[in-house]
Simulated assay, not measured.
Amino acid sequence: MNWRKSSRSNEQDCVEVAFVRQGVAVRDSKNVSGPMLTVPVSGWDAFRADLREKQA
C-alpha cells in the first residue's frame, strides 16, 4: 500500500491515506500497525467536499 501523509499533519495530529480496491484507507501515521478506516471513494469525496465548504 502506498500511504501518503497529509500536508496538514503535525507532531500531534498525523493522518495518512492510501487508495485501495475498496476505496480509501485512513490511518494514524503515529500508529502504523494500528487500525485503519476504509471508506468508499464516494464517501471520501463527500468528506473532502464538506471540509472545503467549512474552510470557505
Rank of each mutant, 00 (worst) to 15 (best):
S9N: 04
Q55C: 06
A49H: 12
V26F: 11
D50F: 06
F47W: 09
S42G: 12
C14G: 15
F47V: 02
S6C: 12
A56E: 03
N31P: 09
G23P: 13
S7K: 15
D28C: 07
P40I: 09
C14F: 08
V41M: 09
Q12K: 13
V20C: 00
W3F: 03
A18R: 00
R21G: 01
V20Q: 01
T38V: 15
V41P: 02
A18L: 04
E11W: 05
G34Y: 11
C14N: 10
A56G: 10
V15N: 14
G34M: 09
S42Q: 04
N10D: 12
A18C: 05
S29E: 05
E11F: 11
D28K: 07
A25Y: 03
W44S: 00
N31I: 12
A49M: 07
V15W: 15
W3I: 01
K54D: 00
F47A: 03
P35H: 05
G34D: 13
K5R: 11
Q22H: 10
W3E: 04
L51Y: 11
R21I: 00
V17I: 15
V32A: 10
E53H: 05
R8D: 05
D45H: 04
V32Q: 03
D13I: 12
R48D: 08
L51W: 08
E16P: 07
V24T: 14
Q55T: 07
